[in-house]
Amino acid sequence: MNHGPLLFLGVLCCVVASWLGLVVGPHFQFGNQDLVLIEETGASYPSARDGLALQGAEVYRANGCNYCHTQQVRGASEGADIARGWGKRRTVARDYLRDRPVMLGNHRFGPDLANLGARQYTTNDLYLKLYNARLLHPRSVMPRYPYLFEERPLRPGAPPSPDALQFPEGSAVPANVEVIPKADALALVAYLQSLKSDAVFFEVFPPPQPPAATNSVSGVDTNAPALGDGTNAAPAMGAEAPANP
C-alpha cells in the first residue's frame, strides 16, 4: 500500500459504496412514496399542516425540542411505547412525508410526541407545560420556556385578557400578573396539536391488544389515545382489529 492513488481509490470505493447502500439505494426504493388515501374519511394521509403549525415546526426546530423528545413509536415487540399509550401503532416512513426537516429525535428525556395531538391535552395545558411544566406535574424535569410568553401586570379594573393562561388551583402565580402566549408559543402549540401518526392503512396495522390497559397508570404523559377517535379503523383489519372506544 505504498501507492497514493490506490489508497485514495480504495477509500473512495468504501465511502461511496456505503453512501449508495444506505442513502441512495433507499432513496430509489421508497423516495417516491406518496400520500395514501384513507377511504373512510376521504382524506389523504399524512395531512397537510396549516400555516401556523408549520411555523410551529420552525419553533420546535429552533429550540431543539428534538434533543429531548422523539417523534417515533416503536412496535409492540421492540419497546413499550404502545403500552405507554404513545401511539396505537408503530410509526412508518410514510408518516413523515410532509416533515421538513424530519425530527425523529434520538433521546427520550421527555415523552414521545409522535401522537401528542391525539392525547387529551387542552390548549391551555400545553401552554402551561411550556410556561412551567411543574404547574401541572410538580416533579417534571422539563425546562421552563418563559421567553415564549409575555408576563404583564393586570390593569386594575380591566378584565383579564381572554388569551391569558388559566392557572390550576393553588399554583404560586402572582394574582396581579397575567401570562399571554407570544406568537412563537401559539405556533408551537398549533404544531404540537398537529402531531398525529395514528391513521391506519395497508402498511400498518394496530398491535393485537388495544392500549386501553394503560389507563390504569396514573402517571403523566401516558394518556391513552383520545376518545371518539375511531374513524380510522380500516375494514381490512377484519375481526382482529381492536375496537376503538
Binding site: S18, W19, L22, V23, P26, H27, F30, G31, N32, Q33, A93, R94, Y96, L97, D99, R100, P101, V102, L104
Partner: peptide
Amino acid sequence: LAGNCLAVWYPLRGVLQAAAQAW
C-alpha cells in the same frame, strides 16, 4: 458535503433525511 446536501440543503423525502444524517 453529502450529509449536508441530502439531509439539509436539498433534503430527501421524509425519513430518508434521517438515513442520510445517520450515515
